[in-house]
Simulated scan of single mutants.
Amino acid sequence: MSRRTEQHPDLTDPRIGAPFFSTWRVGSPERQQRTVEAIARTWERRAWPARDLLAYHVYAGQDGSTLMHYSQWTGEHAYESFVKAHRQERVDEIDTAVPGIERVGLGRYRRYRSRERAVGDARVPELIVTVRVEFEVAERREEWVDLVVKALDDDPEGNTGLVSAHFHLSTDGGHVLNYAEWESADDYERALAAPASEMWERVRTYPGVKGSVGGRYRHALGLVPG
Results as ranks from 00 to 15, higher is better:
Gly174Leu: 10
Met199Ala: 15
Arg202Thr: 06
Thr171Met: 13
Val148Gln: 02
Pro156Asn: 01
Ala165Phe: 09
Asp155Trp: 02
Asp154Trp: 03
Ala180Asn: 01
His168Lys: 04
Thr171Asp: 14
Asp187Asn: 03
Glu183Val: 13
Arg202Gly: 03
Gly161Ser: 09
Arg204Tyr: 11
Thr171Glu: 15
Val148Gly: 00
His166Thr: 10
Glu189Cys: 05
Val149Thr: 05
Gly158Val: 02
Lys150Cys: 00
Asp172Met: 09
Ser197Pro: 03
Asn159Glu: 03
Leu169Met: 14
Val176Pro: 03
Met199Gly: 09
His166Met: 11
Pro156Trp: 00
Pro195Val: 03
Asp153Gly: 06
Leu162Gln: 04
Ala180Lys: 00
Asp153His: 06
Thr205Cys: 08
Arg141Val: 07
Ala185Lys: 11
Lys150Tyr: 01
Ala194Gly: 04
Tyr206Phe: 15
Val163Met: 06
Leu169Arg: 06
Ala165Arg: 01
Ser184His: 11
Leu147His: 07
Arg141Trp: 04
Ala194Tyr: 01
Glu201Pro: 02
Ala180Ser: 14
Ser184Gln: 06
Glu157Asn: 03
Asp154Phe: 02
Val149Pro: 00
Leu177Val: 14
Ala151Ile: 01
Ala165Cys: 09
Val145Ile: 15
Arg140Met: 07
Tyr188Arg: 05
Asp154Lys: 03
Asp186Gly: 11
Glu183His: 13
Arg202Tyr: 02
Ala180Leu: 06
Asp155His: 01
Val148Ile: 15
Asn178Arg: 12
Asp186Leu: 14
Ser164Gly: 13
Ala194Asn: 02
Trp144Met: 06
Ala185Trp: 05
Thr205Arg: 14
Val148Arg: 01
Trp144Cys: 06
Ala185His: 08
Ser164Tyr: 04
Tyr206Trp: 12
Leu192Arg: 09
Asp146Gln: 07
Glu181Ile: 06
Pro207Tyr: 12
Glu143Ser: 11
Val149Gly: 00
Asp155Ala: 14
Ala151Lys: 01
Glu142Asn: 11
Asp186Cys: 05
Tyr188Trp: 14
Leu177Asn: 10
Leu147Gly: 10
Val145Leu: 06
Trp200Arg: 12
Asp153Met: 10
Pro207Gln: 12
Val176Glu: 11
Glu143Met: 07
Gly161Glu: 03
Arg204His: 12
Lys150Gly: 00
Asn178Ile: 12
Trp200Lys: 07
Glu143Trp: 04
Glu189Arg: 15
Glu201Asn: 15
Asp155Phe: 00
Arg204Lys: 13
Ser184Pro: 04
Thr160Glu: 08
Gly208Ser: 12
Leu147Asp: 08
Ala196Pro: 03
Leu152Asn: 07
Val148Thr: 01
Glu189Ala: 09
Asp154Glu: 10
Ser184Gly: 08
Pro207Ala: 11
His168Asn: 15
Ser170Glu: 13
Ser164Asn: 08
His166Cys: 10
Tyr206Asp: 10
Glu198Ser: 04
Pro195Lys: 10
Trp182Met: 06
Ala191Tyr: 13
Gly208Arg: 10
Glu201Val: 09
Ser197Asn: 08
Val203Tyr: 04
Arg190Lys: 13
Val203Asn: 03
Glu189Gly: 02
Leu147Thr: 08
Gly173Asn: 08
Phe167Gly: 01
Glu157Met: 01
Leu152Phe: 02
Glu143Lys: 10
Gly174Phe: 06
Trp200Glu: 12
Phe167Trp: 13
Ala180Gln: 06
Glu183Ile: 08
Val145Ser: 07
Gly173Tyr: 09
Glu189Ser: 11
Thr171Tyr: 05
Glu157Val: 05
Glu198Gln: 14
Leu152His: 04
Ala185Pro: 05
His168Gly: 05
Glu181Gln: 13
